[in-house]
Design a protein around this nucleic acid. Sequence first.
RNA 1: GGGCGCGUAGCUCAGCGGGAGAGCACUGCCUUCACACGGCAGGGGUCGCUGGUUCAAUCCCAGCCGCGCCCA
Length: 880
Amino acid sequence: MLGKTFDAAAVERTHYENWEKAGAFAADPNSSKVPYTIMMPPPNVTGSLHMGHALTFTIQDILVRYKRKTGNDTLWQPGTDHAGIATQSVVERQLAAKQITRRAIGREAFVEKIWEWKAESGGTITSQLRALGASPDWQRERFTMDEGCSDAVAKVFVELHKKGLIYKDKRLVNWDPELHTAISDLEVQQVESKGHLWYFRYPLEDDPSRHIVVATTRPETMLGDSGIAVHPDDERYKDLVGKYAILPLVGRRIPIVADEYSDPEKGSGAVKMTPAHDFNDFEVGRRHNLEQINIFDSRARINENAPEAYRGLDRFDARKKIIADMEEAGLLEQIEDIQHTVPHGDRSGVEIEPWLTDQWYCDAETLAKPAIEAVETGKTQFVPKSWENTYFDWMRNIQPWCISRQLWWGHQIPAWYGPDGSIFVEESEEAAQAAADAHYGATTEITRDEDVLDTWFSSALWPFSTLGWPEKTPELDRYYPGDVLVTGFDIIFFWVARMMMMGIHFMGEVPFSTVYIHALVRDQHGAKMSKSKGNVMDPLDLIEKFGTDALRFTLTAMAAQGRDIKLAESRVEGYRNFTTKLWNAARYAEMNECQWDASFDPKAATQTVNRWIISELAETEAKVSKAIDGYRFNDAAGALYHFIWGTYCDWYLEFTKPILSGADKAAAEETRKATAWVLMQAINLLNPLMPFITEELWSAFGGEGQLITTAWPDGLKEAADADAIAEMDWVVRLISEVRSIRSEMNVPAAAKIDLLLKDMSAQTVERLERNRDVIIRLARLENISATDDIPTGAVQGVIDEAMIILPIADVVDLAQERVRLEKDLGKLNGEIMKLDKKLSNESFISRAPAEVVEENRERLADEKTKRDKLAAALERIAAL
RNA sequence: GGGCGCGUAGCUCAGCGGGAGAGCACUGCCUUCACACGGCAGGGGUCGCUGGUUCAAUCCCAGCCGCGCCCA
């Protein structure tokens, strides 16, 4: 016996364990079914489940569960990535609490500590994914730093290096002075902030009484200035180009050059050039052979390349001192308040310092070309399509990808150096040693590059490294390329772009044919969820409160393409109520001994009401399949919600109550079976969205095996019956009309009244006879009969050709009835006027498609019939 | 500055060339034998503004106003 409400917490764990035990999630490389592959973008091993995860994994899970049911051999490849900076920071903080630094214990011991931590807490996110009901093939779970993935990384690095697509270069990088590592452009957040523009006077070499004024937002960088740029067309400075200024506080002689980079409108029109500390200056400096003077150490303190007075100062202290010193020297002309963006590291939160270092780069431009073409030619398609623009824009302007990081946690770069700096890039130390020995002609000591690779380098290989590449495994052959990559737009650059580049280069094929970009989950007011704002909703809290199914269904129902999700707890509550509704429908079926019979043949149903619900089910199945196939998850959720609540519960279960208790045993028996059968089919359709409650009900009703591996309903269309739909639609409309009149006329809910019908067609008479009991029950009637007369003071309505007459003269307030009829007539007349106007328009008749014209004619006729009947009813009232 | 997107019922959003929809909220009635996490009925919208295309525009196009995001 089912309990009064669904207790999610009580059954979720059990069903999940049963699925895993039964191997329901497992891909089967030996299967003859068509493979369907989703590569789970690996979450950070340090992470814990947030709303974004909940959405993205719910969507992936729906696709995978659906495809399993529709006859595919599915591989949903799970795993985690090692999240270089994030993970290293966590462990460093733990050590710092004990006053230990990583340098103090050394690389080997430190990395060991991280592995220990990973063993301890690395399972958090995966266990939370289980709580969400995600069904990836856990047996195949991978980690970006496990042996196979690491081998793939080494091989890729070596191969790309041999082709010249990976190289070492001295360039400016985004340096995080807190974490002491280079970071990617994508890990830099531009923060809008208030700042100042300081105007400095730099004296001219040949006439120290004259100055050129430069404006800067970063005075401390002047210590590294090696030039001044002005616009070639700027009349103010034309005579100064080619001359020299003397850098104050330093005394260096620096050239004044003409370069279009300088904007005459901005500041003074003259810009100081610090090629070692600004990306734009770096480019200008290259064009004019300006010196690159690095004035910072790795902590962004002034180094030995600056005058002694400033050495050792932190960059912000140096700024204050320089401003003070310039002012004292009379060289500070003015200070302007400005609004500008300042780059910050998204992990450390500190200001990023553009810094000149030796780093490893990947030639992303070359790798991007085929990746761009693959999307242009449709080998990979974005859904929604508009995201292609974002992808193209980034890929076409891609910069060399800095892949080295000054961390200890990650894939150590497979490059070794000889005593003279010669580089040996090989997959193993032995191979590098052999190469070095051969190079030097004698056994020579080599040392390995200290740095590790960007985490995204290994994530880029995920679609094939997890399948065993570079080995030619059956899995690689079968599951590559994958079908769809599901992710948020903010990750297009991180995953999509890089997986595309590496996949095409090493596999010769795109890694996935579709990229589905879903929304971001925001709070109910549309603000991004963040810890500092305190508006974070924890999916695990919601799961605990309302159940996993309710959370999943909420996210699905709100996952409309191209729009962010503004999530409020009340929505989850609303869909929790939906699970309760479904649960109670099942409880009702159970109480009425509606038992599941797998052999029930929907095509053989004889009762109109059963043929009708089967037809509605068939339409729902079609809608849900179409919606999931088209990544329109909200449509799938909507169709199921409407069918289960609005059709099955609100109407079907009510329609069939008189049959169940009626005298026709055969009809009752068929209806019992149909009730259970339709419920079980609906549960099957709902299963990908709400896996737990559906599995629970499936077993409660004795469904064979587990619902997760039960095939999607098939052949429903053949059982659909348009006549049954038309008939029950008429019944619904009749009942609704009677109820509506009763309510408006304040007929007490408990009062049973008579219903008279006039002018019925033969078909209506038949429909009435077949559904008499149901109509009496649901419209709360005493009796229904046909009539030719309209009793005095009766209340009237219309359904199609027939008049609805409720002889309740004794309780009717005539004035109220007049108001009701006039209101209805008003609406009808409005409609009729619009249709009349349209149909009397010559161009409409001649240019609109014939079926549209015909449809409008029919509608007009229907509305007029109804209007005439109501008008007559109103006249009769007036005559009283 | 460049790009993308959004302005539809009180709120959150579907719809996107031919009769304005949903959920929640709201109002009234109902302790009807599955469900008050419920049932029945109902109110509420010049579909941001202005033009254009069309027989027909919430839907397509242009401009404007307002809002958001991404990139410089």
